[in-house]
Structure formats: structure tokens, C-alpha cells
Design a protein around this nucleic acid. Sequence first.
DNA 1: CGGCTAATTAGCTGAATTGTTAAATACGAA
DNA 2: TTCGTATTTAACAATTCAGCTAATTAGCCG
Lengths: 116, 116
Amino acid sequence: MSTDRLSLIFSALADPTRRAILARLAEGDATVNELAEPFSISLPAVSRHLKVLEAAGLISRSRNAQWRSSKLEAEPLREATEWMDRYRRFWDASFTRLDEHLRRIQHDSQKPGVKQ
Amino acid sequence: MSTDRLSLIFSALADPTRRAILARLAEGDATVNELAEPFSISLPAVSRHLKVLEAAGLISRSRNAQWRSSKLEAEPLREATEWMDRYRRFWDASFTRLDEHLRRIQHDSQKPGVKQ
DNA sequence: CGGCTAATTAGCTGAATTGTTAAATACGAA
DNA sequence: TTCGTATTTAACAATTCAGCTAATTAGCCG
């Protein structure tokens, strides 16, 4: 894992447990114990997942007595989506034909040693 | 890394070299050598990055003589975006205030042992 | 203070990831 | 079939990751 922001975000999202935690937080803030409840993993494991999510900026945490509440911060998801938006035309049906054409042209002139 | 589809996609995107490869492929198909050129890593390393991208469905590959051409397949990016879209309201300014309020209400009724 | 609950840190595993160099494979051309 | 180029596979080292249990810290309350 690199330390640049997007890498942090994507690798935080790469774990299904962490995605489930985010899904749970979308329904409201929760403590570590509440977040751990649905999973069959230990509390320390959940604690570390939260640390990863926090490092990626995907959650923020506050302390209230001995409870630490986690809160969803979806801004990084926007960042990630923004990065992917550069490729939107590649899956958007209305661009498919033009794209095919442009790619074929570029392909022919760039690829070395290809005869057709 | 888990084996479910989204995990494969996100963890493929977590590496900056792989993201750069995708960016390059957005400009047109390319061979392994062409893709490796901008990086200071060995050819085998690039070859394995391509394997990861292929496993995630982010590229497809074809052989033409001894050259293996990679092609961007952005459909998985759409999938990933779709997953993240569930959180769009959390970064949409028009929802911010309502959200704050709803979260606070839920927070109060859910969090155990909190007095205020 | 002493006990209780919540959460984190420490220390340890095993598996996965990323990189390397050297060897093997694939295929066209001479 | 032999040479040369493109690419992959093998074998290895270093690092990171995700999990565990045990110990520690944090803070409320009696």
C-alpha cells in the first residue's frame, strides 16, 4: 500500500469487512462494540479496521466517556468516484461506437510490428 | 485480499502503478513494453500488475504475434462507482443539514450508556 | 480507591503483495 | 532450425495485512 490519498482510500475499500462497516455507519453512528457485533472477528481486529478507515478519511471518531463513536465521512468516496469518472465514457453506451473507432485508429498507429 | 468481485476491483485500484497503467490505456491499447516504459520497475513486475488488472476485469488482453495488447475494460469501475453511490447523499451538500440532524437523533437512541 | 466496561496496544502468526534476477516460453523472420 | 524480441514463470527476499490472545489504557461509578 502506498501512502498517497487515493491508494489509502481504495485499499481501505478493498476489504469486505470494512465495506460492511461503512454500510452500517450509513445508518447511523456506532461504537466499536456495535460495529463488531455482526462479525465473527475479534474486537481488536475491528479496532484496526477502524484505524484503516480513519487513516483514509472515511470515518471520523469522537469520544464520549469510554465509548468511541465512529461517523461516516463520505468525502473520500467522492474523491474516488471523481478519479473513476475519467473512465465513464468507457462504459457509457452512448460513447461506445465512437470510442471503438478512436481506439482502433490509435491502436493502428501505436502498436509496433503489427500488420493488417 | 478477498475473492469477491468488488474487493478484487478496489484492491487492483489501490496501487498507483496500476492506476497509471489504466490511465495510459485510456489513451489506447498498448503492449507490455509500452506500458512498462514510464516506470522504473522491471518488466516482470509490470506483467504481474497486468495480471491483477485482468483478474479484476479492468483490462482484457489479446495476442498479436509475440505482442500482447492490453485493452481497458471500464465496466468494473462502473460497478465500483455504483457501490459508492449509496453514500452519495453523505457528501451532497443539500443533504448535509438534514443528515446531521437524523444522525444525531439515531445516535442518541442507539448509543448505550450515554447520558446527556 | 477498586471494580467494571470499552477500546487499544503488544506480540505473535500465516498468507498475500511487490519487487528482484534468471530461466523459460511464444512466435516471427531469416 | 536458429536468432531475436516480447512476455511470462520460477524462485527468492522484504514488507504488509488480517487475524488471534493477552495485557494495557481510559473513564465511569459505587
